[in-house]
């Protein structure tokens, strides 16, 4: 898995609450059997004025210039600033794949939906939870300052702002370690394969009806 240690990047806002994963990547693009290539269809229904479909030349489609990511000042953004309950709805991991493929490395929001939050860490994408007040102030700062960049330091759990001040953020020790080291989580789990086998053997004795029926 891709590791994440430190990142400096331009911040782009998506100023609405409850952004669901259908909005992040609409269903017609989930027919792909690949993990990559979702970036051009990130936020498809907000980003383009027409209806998108798979395997299309997206460069020819009419853009919705009201949508933040289409504005020149947010070109090349790699930090997404969002509001509460970001990533709610469907469990599709295509959502973090699309964010990653577009070029985002960090999403900052006042809260995240559980499944999306979890999926981010599997893809080297760092979701950061900050208080509603701080998120509000970041929206104002991004709006007021073109080229607004942040430095995110995962090891230190610190965000450096352009005005020289810093913010700290919380993150689970396990998630942090996985991202810092870019750990292969399956490999890590399989280091415990003897514990898993021992558990399974006992479980089979206790609950035999759960085994060998399919």
């Amino acid at each position: 898995m891709k590791s994440f240690k430190q990142h400096t990047g331009l911040v782009a806002p998506i100023d609405r609450a409850n952004v669901d994963t259908d909005m992040i990547i609409p269903k017609q693009f989930l027919k792909s059997i690949k993990r990559s290539g979702f970036g051009p269809n990130l936020f498809d229904e907000l980003r383009y004025l027409d209806e998108g479909f798979p395997d299309q030349d997206n460069s020819q489609r009419p853009l919705n210039m009201d949508f933040s990511l289409n504005q020149p000042r947010f070109k090349g953004a790699s930090i997404l600033l969002a509001r509460e309950n970001f990533g709610c709805g469907s469990s599709r991991e295509h959502a973090p794949w699309a964010l990653d493929d577009y070029g985002f490395r960090v999403v900052i929001a006042s809260s995240f939906a559980d499944i999306f939050y979890n999926n981010c860490f599997k893809n080297g994408l760092l979701p950061i939870v900050l208080s509603k007040d701080i998120v509000d102030s970041l929206f104002l700062a991004v709006d007021a300052n073109e080229g607004y960049e942040l430095l995110i330091d995962l090891e230190q759990q610190r965000i450096d702002l352009p005005d020289g001040t810093s913010l700290s953020f919380e993150i689970d020790a396990f998630y942090k370690q996985c991202l810092l080291e870019g750990l292969d989580e399956i490999g890590l789990t399989l280091q415990d394969k003897e514990s898993i086998s021992a558990f399974e053997q006992q479980w089979r004795k206790d609950s035999p009806w759960l085994f060998d029926v399919l």
Binding site: R35, S91, R92, I115, K122, I186, T189, L190
Partner: peptide, 20 residues
């Protein structure tokens, strides 16, 4: 409960989920 595709692979490979 629902899981992401990386977890689908994880469960296929290990019969376990890393959970909190």
């Amino acid at each position: 409960h629902g899981i992401g595709t990386s977890e689908v692979e994880h469960v296929l490979a290990s019969q376990c989920l890393v959970a909190k």
